[in-house]
């Protein structure tokens, strides 16, 4: 069975780009804002979450905080996307419990590798 990835980005083209790009390998669901994503999470359990930071209704930080408050998703790997390259943003994401941080525009191959790294950490550990 394909692993499930939740993509949250208010920008439809990025969201669909990720859904299209990843759907061959994974079962991908796209949501336009944090609130919608949290509601979806009540009935679904993703293996990984990709979340944009700058979003209008509920930004990525609040979403990440709420995600970590839920018992079911306390340890779900999260990759944060941002349009701004800044270390304070990265630090904030890591502090709130994100695993990785990627700046837009990004190399799709890098995102793919980050997903694999987070979904199969044991496999990577064995390689080291």
């Amino acid at each position: 069975m394909k692993q499930k990835i939740l993509v949250i980005d208010d920008e439809r083209s990025i969201r669909l780009l990720l859904v299209n790009f990843l759907s061959k390998m994974y079962d991908v669901v796209g949501k336009g804002d944090g609130e919608e994503a949290l509601e979806w999470l009540e009935g679904n359990l993703p293996d990984l979450v990709i979340c944009d930071i700058q979003m209008p209704k509920m930004d990525g930080y609040v979403f990440l905080e709420k995600l970590r408050q839920r018992g079911y998703t306390r340890h779900t790997p999260v990759i944060m996307l941002s349009g701004v390259e800044s270390s304070p943003e990265r630090v904030k994401c890591y502090t709130l419990g994100a695993q990785d941080f990627l700046v837009k525009p990004f190399n799709p191959e890098e995102l793919s590798a980050l997903i694999k790294k987070n979904l199969f950490p044991v496999h990577y550990a064995l390689k080291w």
């Binding site: 083209s13 990025i14 780009l17 349009g83 525009p105 799709p108």
Partner: peptide
């Protein structure tokens, strides 16, 4: 492609 996966230009990849 890495330069175009931004909010503004990513639509082309759809």
């Amino acid at each position: 492609a890495e330069l175009l996966t931004s909010d503004l230009f990513s639509k082309r990849f759809l």
